[in-house]
Simulated scan of single mutants.
Amino acid sequence: MRNRNLQNRITTGRLTLPVVILICITCWLLTGFVLSPSGNEPDTYILWQWFDESGFPQWGTQAISFALYAGIGYFLIEMNNAFGLIRMRASVQTSLYFLLVSVCPALHHFYPGNIAALSLLVSLYFLFKSYQESKPAAHLFHSFAFIGIGSIAFPQLTFFFPIWLIGAYNFQSLTLRSFCAALLGWSLPYWFLFAHAFFYGQMELFYAPFVELCSFRPIELTEQFEQGEIAMLIYLFIQFTVSSVHTIASGYQDKIRTRAYLNFMIFVCLLLFICIFLQPGHSSVLLSVLLPIISILMGHLYALTNNRAANAFFICSMISLILLFIFNVWMLL
């Protein structure tokens, strides 16, 4: 009986999130100051090269990255409270997200994935708010504006534009007016970028996102993926598969609105896995974008199941996370 209730006590406990935050801080201190990982490979994107050449100290980049991840964690709680994705006021999705980030030392530095993940999550929030709205133009404007903001840091985020339009169509919020608002929202950050580039005579800054968007890196799985990334992706795909099957099988218990939200997130996660496979050179950034969405699906699984099989899977998943962190730390030694 004790083992059978362990999952429920952890996922619904009030002390779970504070304990996870302490674990997260410990992991960051270990990987940041003791092991001093080398971080990501140099990026060819000119806007990110400008940041790398600014000489920002390592502790500063980690502090910025930690603040962005904290913002994502807070927003995950707000999304659940606003849309009832887990049918209860829970913070388990944030706890899972912090744990997933903690076991990946390569994600602890400030890089495009931090901005892209936060931008896409906020964009998803406004897209959900447009569900069956009589006047959805404002929500879609804000949603696509955040896609535009994220795409300046990671231009490939623009490929989510048609995916978000599919979501808006499924949410019955896509009209001619809302489509124009979405297009205007996406282009808004680029108007500011154009003004800056034109004023300072650096038009290559404005062209850079579009040049990067049209460049496709070769598919070289054996050379692009590191062993830690492969292990993490296998773990996440198992979690995604089990969580998706549970979400679809138990969908009759959710409201129609909630079911539409969860199905769209499953669709986005599947596309992200495909993008990681097709463009392994962007795996670290796409992994950061994937983690917040898959954390919601995992939280839906762990918070709403309470049987022997689910409890055993939860325990195995937590043990696997510990082993993943040990393996990633060992790879840094």
Rank of each mutant, 00 (worst) to 15 (best):
S38T: 14
R308K: 14
A116N: 02
I25M: 12
G228D: 01
P162F: 03
S295Y: 09
I149S: 03
L30G: 02
L333W: 15
Q156T: 10
T222E: 09
A137F: 01
P162Q: 06
L127G: 03
F237G: 00
I149E: 04
F128Q: 09
Q156R: 11
P57M: 06
H282E: 13
F33C: 09
L124K: 03
L193A: 05
L213D: 06
L301D: 01
F160T: 06
L213Y: 10
C24S: 13
I147N: 00
L304N: 15
F146G: 00
I326T: 14
N311A: 10
R177P: 00
T12P: 04
Q224W: 08
Y261H: 07
S173Y: 00
L332K: 02
P18F: 07
Y45A: 03
S320Y: 08
P280R: 01
Q62V: 15
E204M: 09
L262D: 07
A310E: 00
T44Q: 10
I294L: 15
L332F: 03
D254A: 10
V268Q: 05
F160Q: 01
A195W: 13
L6P: 05
N311I: 05
I64A: 07
L290D: 00
S54F: 03
E41G: 09
P209G: 05
C316R: 07
L30E: 05
S320I: 09
C180L: 12
V19W: 14
Y235W: 11
S243K: 02
I322D: 14
A117P: 02
S119L: 06
K129E: 13
F171W: 03
N3H: 13
I152W: 00
N306K: 15
Y131A: 03
Q202V: 14
L321S: 02
Q227T: 12
Y69G: 12
F240Q: 04
I274A: 13
F267Q: 07
V268P: 00
V20A: 04
C269K: 07
V101Q: 04
F199G: 14
L100F: 13
Y207A: 14
S91A: 08
F51S: 08
V268W: 05
T158N: 05
T94N: 06
F56A: 13
C27V: 14
Q58V: 13
K129G: 10
L301A: 06
Y97M: 11
K135T: 12
